[in-house]
Amino acid sequence: MGNTVGLLSEALAQLPWETIGVWVAALLTLAVYTYLAGSNPLYLLVQHIFVGMAVGYAVVVVWHSLLAPRVAQFMSAPTAYWHYVVFLLLGLALLSRAFPRISWLGDVPLAYLFGVGAALSIAGAIAGSLIPQTEASIAPLLPAYYGSGMIGVAYALDRALVSLGAIAVLAYFYFGGKKQEGVGRVWSSIVGIWSGAGRWLIIVVFGALFASVAVGRIALLIGRLHFLSSYWLKLTGG
């Protein structure tokens, strides 16, 4: 038995795994592109393989990189790492969500997770986004502040556009959705024009975001074709 396993593993080790891997990857890539002709079983098969492999790989990585080292630490020095037991119990309590009668046990770790997550997110957003971005939008508009000549003018103009754009977008969100009452016609017109400009700015931003996503998709196509031309076609003599 032992000899059989040994021979088998030796034979497997001698297989050209790299070549096999390239062939499998190439065929799976082509199978994905069969979707261009419509949904078909081959495409669906690859889709399922991808999802399954991603989940399986994630499980292995979590065990290999996260759980196993902690277990080893605890087993080697239980008194030093006694607090790992607490985290283990909290993790097990999460699994209780699958059993309705004891699902309340899962509330404790969930509350902890949500609480910590919310605290870190809110504090981080204030310190890392809200305040710095607000400060950055308040900038002098004097060209001399940025440099001499046209460079200073260009920078000042850029800052002015950023500030005006920020105000316009805020005006759109604040004034765009409701009819202004009790204000003069002139003021109402100014607010209307201003919020309209903000609306157009938002449209432009959404357009840029969409175009960026399209750029990314083209990049993925390039990556796949690069793989096929650089690895697979070379293997096939192309």
Partner: peptide, 23 residues
């Protein structure tokens, strides 16, 4: 940016997808 750069001031750069760039 929010969890490391802002509180600890470590220099930060990024390589990202084109879709992430406008934001």
């Amino acid at each position: 940016l929010e969890q490391i750069q802002a509180p600890y001031g470590v220099p930060l750069v990024t390589v990202m997808t084109a879709a992430a760039e406008p934001g």
